[in-house]
Simulated assay, not measured.
Amino acid sequence: MTSTSIRRAIVPGIAALALALSACGAANEQSGAADAGGELSGTLAGGGASTQQAAMGAWAVGFQGTHPDVTIEYDPIGSGGGRENFISGAFPYAGSDAYLSDNEGELSAATERCSGDVPIQVPSYISPIAVAYNLPGVDELHLSPQALAGIMAGTITEWDDQAIAADNEGVDLPAERINAVHRSDESGTTENFTDYLTTVAPDEWDAGVVETWPTEYGGEGAKGTSGVVQTVANSEFSVGYADASQTADLGKALIGVGDDFVEPSAEAAAKILEASPEAENASDTAVIYDLDFATEEAGTYPIVLTSYLMACQTYDDAADGELVKAFMEYVVSDEGQDQAAAEAGSAPLSDTIQEQALAIIESIG
């Protein structure tokens, strides 16, 4: 799993996405704390993967239903920014579509930030990465792994190319140039997407697994999940990759898996973990996976991300620890998973993974 290098983290403008749901005014602008009656109050400010933006909005609303004196803030600055600000101590928790590893020292740096204890990493949800397109007159589009890789690598440049037409018999594909849209920022979604391309179509995609898009492949860059979605929506003959929960009314390609083409539904995405091994660094504090993008299991959508929450086992500021623990418990609970599924279209965690994650979160002290 590729990781980003450590840079001096800068606290981002939380106002970029302030899920400010406080009912108690200025008293809640302190760091989270429990009042004399044991009720939680305060502000919990984190950030990271922009894919989690829709789910975070749902979780913030649901969590405040039980804890009305707490404000949850989440800045969708990208997975790399989330990990950097967690490591620097700017965020007490972060969201990322790529787990921490020591390929470039991130896991060790996060362990140092957490007072020598390895950080907690648990899945928050599973979501399909949709290949979203804006192609007038085309209601259903089939893409083989090789055709998709060729489009994103810039070697397939026209929509009526035979590599696309072969899997779309009877579809009137336009003789128009493809505008392939990618993330311009460091992104866990890009890492998962290019991991898929590298696994299933290495001849067509030779840039390897990356978090930052290779500029030599061309295409149009857009910042964040919302940027990709907006660019595709505003530009006919465009195609891009984004968390399916945020692709709204855009067309979503069916991707070749074995002899079938599978749509990016939450149910189809959830099946991939059943075929995927735990990552080498999985432990009693880290429920992390290396996804089996090459699966040919019927009905399984193969371009998937498992989004993670990361936190410390202990905090110097006990109030931070209380808020992080309570919020993460809610996210992984049945209620939190149902809330994200209903509002953000994510796939709920399996019972087994949910139990593992809750046991780890419970240890935060």
Results as ranks from 00 to 15, higher is better:
42 G>W: 06
56 M>Y: 08
63 F>M: 11
30 Q>H: 10
64 Q>A: 15
64 Q>I: 01
26 A>D: 09
44 L>V: 14
32 G>N: 07
41 S>A: 14
44 L>P: 09
58 A>L: 06
56 M>C: 04
57 G>Q: 12
39 E>A: 15
42 G>S: 09
29 E>D: 10
49 A>N: 12
22 S>L: 12
58 A>V: 04
32 G>F: 06
57 G>A: 06
46 G>I: 08
34 A>T: 09
23 A>V: 14
34 A>L: 10
35 D>T: 11
21 L>M: 10
46 G>Q: 04
36 A>C: 02
27 A>W: 00
61 V>W: 00
32 G>V: 13
43 T>Q: 03
47 G>N: 01
31 S>P: 06
20 A>Q: 12
60 A>E: 06
64 Q>G: 12
54 A>V: 05
32 G>Y: 01
43 T>L: 03
34 A>Y: 05
56 M>R: 09
63 F>D: 02
60 A>F: 00
48 G>A: 11
22 S>Y: 08
46 G>K: 03
60 A>V: 05
53 Q>K: 13
29 E>A: 12
34 A>H: 00
21 L>V: 13
32 G>T: 15
25 G>Q: 01
33 A>Y: 13
39 E>G: 08
31 S>I: 14
20 A>W: 11
54 A>C: 00
51 T>I: 04
35 D>Y: 09
33 A>S: 10
63 F>I: 10
28 N>H: 01
55 A>C: 02
30 Q>L: 07
32 G>I: 12
36 A>Q: 11
26 A>S: 12
41 S>L: 14
37 G>M: 12
41 S>P: 01
23 A>N: 15
55 A>V: 04
55 A>M: 13
58 A>I: 06
59 W>G: 05
42 G>K: 11
23 A>R: 15
30 Q>V: 11
47 G>V: 02
26 A>H: 03
36 A>H: 04
44 L>T: 06
66 T>K: 13
53 Q>M: 11
20 A>Y: 10
22 S>W: 10
60 A>D: 04
54 A>K: 13
30 Q>A: 13
20 A>P: 02
53 Q>D: 13
52 Q>A: 15
39 E>H: 14
42 G>L: 14
35 D>G: 15
22 S>M: 05
32 G>H: 01
44 L>C: 04
22 S>G: 14
30 Q>P: 00
38 G>R: 08
27 A>D: 13
53 Q>G: 07
59 W>N: 08
39 E>Y: 07
47 G>F: 03
29 E>I: 11
36 A>T: 03
29 E>G: 07
32 G>S: 14
54 A>N: 04
55 A>P: 06
27 A>Y: 03
66 T>Y: 08
40 L>D: 05
56 M>A: 12
46 G>Y: 09
45 A>M: 14
64 Q>P: 00
24 C>M: 06
38 G>F: 10
53 Q>A: 15
52 Q>V: 04
59 W>A: 08
62 G>F: 03
57 G>K: 05
31 S>C: 01
37 G>H: 07
39 E>W: 03
35 D>A: 11
62 G>N: 04
47 G>K: 02
